[in-house]
């Protein structure tokens, strides 16, 4: 890629800069004036009621959704309709989905090596070595030859995390990674995410796991109605929320605990 005129990733500035970004679904204004800067190594948790636009916002960052106004800049690359820029950004940004979205016709190992081999043009042996390293990090190297359909939900989500890490991304996006899991499997996935945070990965996590937010987040963002309502460091956010909407939301999700 170095000999082409594609914008190269710039590692000095902030990881993500979103300014005055708007998005509409038809006439429906889903995201309104989003401004957000994510520094390198920063861990951000995004929360809010369902339909508040939090998933849509992080899906705009790797162009799974298109924004119509404002700008998104990832590692110094402006996100436009230029397919080359989109592909470059997608290589630098890993994403973990609520429903895992593993490729069911490939083994766990093949799921992990597919993108490095085909997108990064890595030799197969090297890709497999790296994949095994990450599968060990998410503590399921013994499942490498199985198919996703033979694993539990928690194991599948850990494979999904390993699959993203194999592309060696600068930034990881998590879109409600534990929402589709049985309660006893949530911890194994959160543990992996905590480890990742400790290693300094830039993370943007949409989740309702407030314990996780308190433990690892540098900043918590609360969204409602397509707007960022409040952001603060976690202790202040949970102990001393400023907006009424934040207070209502926190009282609802923390009501039982």
């Amino acid at each position: 890629m170095s000999d082409t005129n594609t914008a190269a990733a710039d590692n000095s500035g902030p990881a993500i800069t979103i300014s005055a970004m708007h998005k509409w679904y038809g006439d429906f204004h889903v995201l309104k004036d989003i401004n957000l800067t994510v520094e390198r190594g920063e861990r951000i948790v995004v929360c809010g009621p369902s339909g508040s636009g939090k998933s849509t916002m992080i899906r705009c960052i790797n162009r799974l959704e298109e924004h119509q106004k404002g700008s998104i800049n990832v590692s110094g690359i402006e996100l436009t309709n230029d397919l080359k820029n989109i592909d470059t950004i997608r290589r630098e940004v890993g994403m973990v989905f609520q429903h895992f979205n593993l490729f069911p016709h490939l083994t766990v190992l093949q799921n992990c090596t597919l993108a490095p081999i085909w997108v990064r043009k890595m030799p197969k042996a090297e890709a497999e070595e790296i994949a095994m390293k990450y599968l060990e990090r998410v503590k399921i190297p013994e499942q490498a030859q199985k198919f996703p359909g033979q694993l539990s939900g928690g194991q599948q989500q850990r494979v999904a995390i390993a699959r993203s890490l194999c592309m060696n991304p600068e930034i990881m996006l998590f879109d409600e990674p534990t929402s589709a899991l049985d309660p006893e499997m949530i911890k194994e996935v959160l543990d992996v995410m905590v480890d990742l945070a400790k290693e300094g990965m830039t993370m943007l996590v949409v989740t309702h796991e407030m314990g996780f937010a308190k433990q690892v987040a540098d900043r918590v963002i609360f969204m409602d109605g397509g707007e960022i309502i409040e952001q603060n460091e976690p202790n202040e956010f949970f102990d001393n929320p400023q907006s009424d909407r934040t207070k209502l939301f926190l009282s609802q999700i923390l009501g039982h605990s």
Binding site: N62, R63, L64, L83, D87, R90, R91, V93, G94, M95, F97, H99, N101, L102, F103, L114, A115, W118, V119, A160, R163, S164, M167
Partner: peptide, 12 residues
């Protein structure tokens, strides 16, 4: 989700 996962990994 399969299309999105492939997109997010940078597959054209």
């Amino acid at each position: 989700g399969q299309f999105e996962a492939a997109d997010s990994l940078g597959l054209n």
